[in-house]
Structures are given as C-alpha cells and as structure tokens.
Nucleic acid binder design. Structure first.
Lengths: 124, 124
DNA sequence: TCATATAGGGATAAATTTATCCCTATCAAA
DNA sequence: TTTGATAGGGATAAATTTATCCCTATATGA
C-alpha cells in the first residue's frame, strides 16, 4: 500500500468531496452501482478501460468512505455485491448534475479536448 | 510538456466534465476566479499549498478549455487578469452543488478521511 | 483433465501529475 | 544598489496513481 508523504488540504467542502471522489474510476463506479450493477465482475465489464486491480482498490476506498456497502456471500466461486449506502445515494444528484453539464456541452467539449491534446495547435 | 501515452475515455458526460475538471487545483481556481480574484498572484496567495508552476499550467488548461479568459496588460511589471467565460460560468452551479454536499457532510467526511489514512485502523 | 469464472491482493513497472529550482525583464521602494 | 513583486515557462526530481503480472481456491462445463 502506498503511504502519502504530504497531507491533503481539507479547508472547505470542495476539498472534502474531492477526497472521496478523486480517483480515475470512482465516479463511474458509483454511477454504475446506482444503475444496478452490483458484482465486481459486472462493473469490470462496464468499465473495460480500467484494470481489475485498480477497480478493486477504488471500490475498497469507496467502502472505507461509507459511500458503498458490500455483501459477501460465503460461496465458491466467490460472490460479492456492492450497493450504495444512504450516504452514497446522497451523492447521486451531484454526480447527476456533473453528467448533465457534460452531456449538455458534449460536442463543444469533445472539440476542446481534442484540440488541447496537440498543444492547442489547430493546424495538425 | 508531457505527452499522453494513453487516450482518455470520452464515452459520456461524466468523462467529458472529468477531462476539464481533473487537476488538483482546477476547481478551486474556477471558484476563486468566480469570487473575484483575478490576478495569478492573488490566486497563488489564495491557494498557498500549490506550487506557482502548476497553478500557471492549470490556468492555461482552463483557458484552452475556454472556461476562463485572460487579459494581458502590456505593462511592466507584468499584469494579467483572468475571468470566467460564459461557458465557465455555466459550471459554477455544478461546482456549487459539489461544495454544498461537502459542507453538509463536513464533520462525517473529516472523520472518514482521517480514518482512511491509517488503513482504517481505528486504534492508532 | 483443462480452461474459465470468481474476488482479492502482493510485488513491481509504467504512466501521469505535481513540486522544486532556475532564468527572463523592469519598475518601485528600502 | 539591492530586494521584491510581477507572469511565464524549461529542466528535472519527487510524489502519486494506475497498469501488469502472478498466486490463492473451487466448482462447472467442454
């Protein structure tokens, strides 16, 4: 496990939400769990770009932050199901607002992001 | 300048907003600019934990993504002012929702974040 | 019998982001 | 005259995050 060498800033609400949402796949994990995908293997299939290892780790962090809960069925092969806690559910409207903004500006954002990848050079 | 070796996922609105907001200080920069802090030096003083170098870089990315605009006064010593574009302003309600969620759960979040730093071991 | 699915995590490499330090140029104030 | 403020960015180091590969264990289906 990696151990931080610098302390995070926690001066305001934005810092706090950042601490629990910062992570490449966390928002998407919450989103898909909210949509009803429960098992780790399902979530991995929904997020093919992510490595299995990191999804597991980020699910664990979400669990430590009490945004998701976990049911372990004592069967073989193993079966686990995640669900949103009430705390996690309270975050859904916020994530929804973020997704809506992105959807509303979909085309413009795609252009901007594409152009910023070649250093803003529009001649490429 | 660092050049990406992997392409970002841009499958939905959440990915898109993530692309423009992901960055340690970007949300805070937008927030403070919205509050009326315009000059880079002011912003640096408002965010003492950040290195000057990175704030400059992230302001430039926000500019490339058309969330902020920039006025350069041809004076010496240099003077520059940033402002939110209409596009950037449209993001303020979203950031506000994030900050509100964090503020509403301030105490709980601080506890959770503190505990997750020592591997969830409550005996430390 | 052998590959596959299942969940988790250790060890290590690679990618990415952020920090540190340095240089430019000029005016104002100590 | 020396210091500091101002904005920007190059070069490089450090920190952090993510990816890759491997191992555990067992039941099922080809």
């Amino acid at each position: 496990m990696y151990e931080r060498k610098t302390l995070p800033n926690l001066s305001c609400g934005l810092d706090l939400i950042g601490e629990v949402l910062y992570g490449k796949w966390k928002i998407r994990l919450l989103w898909f769990i909210n949509e009803g995908y429960k098992r780790p293997s399902e979530l991995q299939r929904k997020i093919p770009g992510a490595s299995r290892r990191v999804l597991t780790a980020q699910l664990k962090e979400l669990e430590n932050h009490e945004l998701v809960g976990k049911v372990i069925y004592p069967v073989v092969p193993p079966k686990v199901e995640y669900y949103l806690t009430d705390f996690g559910k309270s975050l859904i409207p916020v994530i929804d607002a973020m997704g809506q903004w992105g959807d509303q500006h979909d085309e413009r954002l795609r252009t901007l992001i594409r152009n910023s990848h070649d250093g803003g050079n529009r001649n490429l």
